[in-house]
Design a protein around this nucleic acid. Structure first.
Length: 490
RNA sequence: GCGGAAGUAGCUCAUUUGGUAGAGCACAACCUUGCCAAGGUUGGGGUGGCCGGUUCGAGCCCGGUCUUCCGCUCCA
């Protein structure tokens, strides 16, 4: 990351705070690491992004419906999904190389080494101890093993280790107000992804909304991950919001649908007028346990190319797992005729294509792309700078600012009429204090695409000045055309 | 977690060797004001991140602690 880019990122963070987009969480108590709150304009922008996504999924696609599943889920959900077993490993760091290892990997590597030296008994002994201590969560004993066998870091070659720490991806909490006999019985997790809420409702949705494959289920909502290092402003947070759509398809057609959604999702981004050259696909080579194919849509943030959205071909992994753990069939009966056999496709577990976008990351994307510190040359040749957010009008927190040129001569009254006229249709902002130029610049700073000024001429011919954010150009239009003009751009 | 940097008004920053904190912007009120942040007057606002030490006296020196940022590390 260059210093220049770094500065731009800092400026965006400062701007976000100063103008009420994003605040550090619990700031009066010195903040909570990697947790942020959205302020008045941030909440509007975030909501507008969410709504735009939701509409593009559930309104523009006849075969996609939405749900809103709970954050709490039955704990077995996470055993089935693989989150419990795959994300609770003890870790240890080498202080010299700064490299982090999974403790079991480290010890197993040593055992293998012993085996190669022909010390079969020692190998067996070591692995037996390890399993015993792992099962007991005895980190002190595990570290003793590492020291006893003089296990070294392959990078630094030293045995300078930190203490062992448990890495838990999922946040745990207690469910129910009364303690259970066995404390473990009361544990529920805060979901680390929204997808499982869709999978466990697959049959409910399919039956009640009478969906036929191929079809999709969309959902937006909070998810929680206890990241080891969560940083970079709202890019990686421990509490974040996902917008996910799981698309269920007939086995054998997954490649075609994967390509379809890969293409479709990038087009969604471009439909907002975001610059194509800042986007790229990143195809995964190393795949997660459930994935058949996977790619990320990356965007060039001020901190470099980073993932905004993932498209994954998840096979029938999730539904199969839930079928196995719940002992409830997760199958679909496909009445369509298979041209090869002349019979219906019959019962099967559908394959899934997932599109998963981080709402907070999308927010940061929009903000990063919108932010500009512009140098403008005035009529007298002198230069000035203005800070402007070129937020797409569809997403802008405030659509229209209504500004009486003077706070007298009946101009505020006329302005209030316009407010009343537009308020029911989109978010408006009214202001009558300070010089007009200052008011324009304040609207630029929060990304308001249109400003309308009411002046004395308005009283004579019912026209107003409309001023455009990006070009700073002004036009005279009829008072009663303002609402229409703004709505055309939303 | 390791290394580095920084915490003074809402924001950006001053306060030369230790002597009971200041500016600009922002905010509020009034006046002024015909179109791109720059008119005037007045006003509100700070236990200097927190705790302790040295000193007659600490925003400044020392120690600890917390938080944030950057780099490394990790990342479904």
């Amino acid at each position: 990351m260059s210093i220049q880019h770094n500065n731009k990122f800092q400026e965006i963070i400062s701007h976000a705070k100063e103008y009420g987009f994003v605040f550090p969480s619990s700031e009066i108590y010195d903040g909570l690491s990697a947790v942020y709150d959205y302020g008045p304009y941030g909440a509007e922008l975030k909501k507008n992004i969410r709504d735009y996504w939701w509409k593009s999924m559930t309104q523009f696609n006849d075969n996609i419906v939405g749900i809103d599943a709970a954050i709490f889920m039955h704990p077995t959900t996470w055993k089935a999904s693989g989150h419990v077993d795959n994300f609770s490993d003890p870790m240890i760091d080498n202080k010299d190389s700064k490299k982090r290892y999974r403790v079991d990997h480290l010890i197993e590597a040593k055992a293998e080494e012993l085996a190669l030296e022909g010390k079969k008994e020692e190998e067996y002994e070591l692995l037996k101890k390890m399993d015993e201590y792992l099962a007991a969560d005895d980190f002190v004993a595990l570290k003793n093993i590492i020291e006893e066998y003089k296990i070294k870091c392959s990078v630094s070659g030293t045995s300078n280790w930190t203490d062992i720490r448990q890495f838990n991806l999922m946040f745990k909490t207690e469910f129910g107000a009364v303690a259970a006999d066995n404390a473990e019985d009361n544990i529920v997790y805060l979901r680390p992804e929204t997808a499982q809420g869709i999978f466990v409702n697959f049959l409910n949705v399919q039956k009640t909304a009478r969906m036929k494959i191929p079809f999709g289920i969309a959902q937006t909502g909070k998810a929680f991950r206890n990241e080891i290092v969560a940083r970079q402003f709202i890019f990686r947070m421990r509490e974040f919001e996902q917008m996910e759509m799981q698309f269920f398809v007939r086995p054998g057609t997954e490649d075609e649908w994967y390509k379809y959604w890969k293409n479709e999702r990038l087009n969604w981004h471009l439909s907002l007028g975001l610059p194509k050259e800042k986007y790229r696909y990143h195809d995964h080579v190393k795949l997660a346990h459930y994935a058949k194919e996977a790619c990320d849509i990356e965007y060039e943030f001020p901190i470099g190319f980073k993932e905004v959205e993932g498209i994954h071909s998840r096979s029938d992994f999730d539904l199969s797992q839930h079928q196995q753990f719940s002992k409830k069939k997760q199958q679909y009966f496909d009445n369509d005729i298979n041209p090869e056999t002349g019979k219906a496709f019959g019962n099967y577990i559908p394959y899934v294509i997932e599109t998963s976008i981080g709402l907070d990351r999308m927010f940061l994307l929009v903000l990063s792309n919108a932010y500009e510190e512009e140098t403008i040359t005035k009529e007298d040749g002198s230069t000035d700078t203005r800070i402007v957010l070129h937020i797409p009008a569809k997403l802008a927190p405030v659509k229209l600012a209504v500004l009486p040129l003077l706070k007298k001569d009946g101009l505020p009254e006329i302005a209030q009429q316009l407010m009343a006229d537009c308020k029911p249709y989109f978010k408006c902002f009214y202001e009558e204090k300070d010089a007009i130029g200052k008011r324009y610049r304040r609207q630029d700073a929060i990304g308001t695409p249109f400003c309308v000024t009411i002046d004395h001429q308005t009283k004579e011919d019912n026209t107003v000045t409309i001023r455009f954010r990006d070009s700073m150009k002004q036009e005279r239009i009829a008072f009663n055309k303002v609402r229409e003009l703004v709505m055309q751009n939303l």
